[in-house]
Each structure stands twice: as C-alpha cells, then as structure tokens.
Amino acid sequence: MRQMKNDYPTLIRRPEVLKRCAFSSTTLHRLIHANDFPSPVQLSERSVAWVENEVDEWIVERIKRRKG
C-alpha cells in the first residue's frame, strides 16, 4: 500500500478503481449499493473519488478470502 502524502489520504477516480479491481462500472455500483465496497467521496455535484487506502484494503481482503 502507498503511504499517504502529507498525512492526507489520496483520492483516486473511477477509471483507476475499475482498473485496480478488474470489474465493470455496473459491478462497482452493485457492490457499493450492497455495502460490499467502499463508498465514494462526493467532491462536487457531479464528481466522486475513492480513498485509495480503502480500495487497496478491499483488494487485500479479497485476496485473503480466496480459497487456497
């Protein structure tokens, strides 16, 4: 995981979230509404982003849950 710059969380936009998680926009929305993925931060009326560390932690949890 990346360190926060200046002790502030880093925000990432939808294309980066989709790339990191390897799923579609539809799946992203479904998981958010099911409370199974971090909610985005509302930046403006039409703009959202995700806290990078929350997305990274979600990915790590999925890796830990896989059957080995």
Rank of each mutant, 00 (worst) to 15 (best):
I59Y: 06
R65W: 11
E52M: 10
I59C: 08
K64F: 03
R46W: 10
H33C: 12
N35G: 04
E45C: 05
P15Y: 14
P9R: 05
S47N: 09
G68M: 15
L31P: 02
T27D: 09
A22L: 04
K19W: 01
L43F: 13
L11C: 03
V48L: 07
H29G: 08
K64C: 10
V41G: 02
L11R: 00
V48I: 09
E54T: 00
Q3K: 12
K67P: 00
S25W: 03
V60E: 14
I12P: 02
M1Y: 14
Q3G: 06
Q3A: 07
E57K: 02
N53T: 05
S39M: 01
P15A: 12
E16R: 15
E61D: 12
A22H: 06
E52S: 05
V48N: 08
D36M: 07
V55A: 03
P40G: 08
S24C: 11
K5F: 07
R14F: 08
I63H: 13
V51A: 02
T26Y: 11
P40V: 01
S47A: 14
Q42K: 11
G68V: 15
R2H: 06
K67S: 13
E61I: 12
W50T: 01
E52L: 10
E57T: 02
D56C: 05
R2P: 01
L31Y: 12
M1Q: 07
N35H: 08
I59S: 09
A22K: 12
R65L: 14
E16G: 02
D36L: 04
H29W: 12
S39L: 06
P15W: 14
S44L: 05
P40Q: 04
E61G: 08
M1A: 15
A49D: 06
V55D: 04
F23I: 00
W58D: 02
N53E: 14
R30F: 03
S24Y: 05
I63W: 09
F23E: 14
P9K: 03
N53K: 12
R20V: 00
R14P: 10
V17I: 01
Y8W: 05
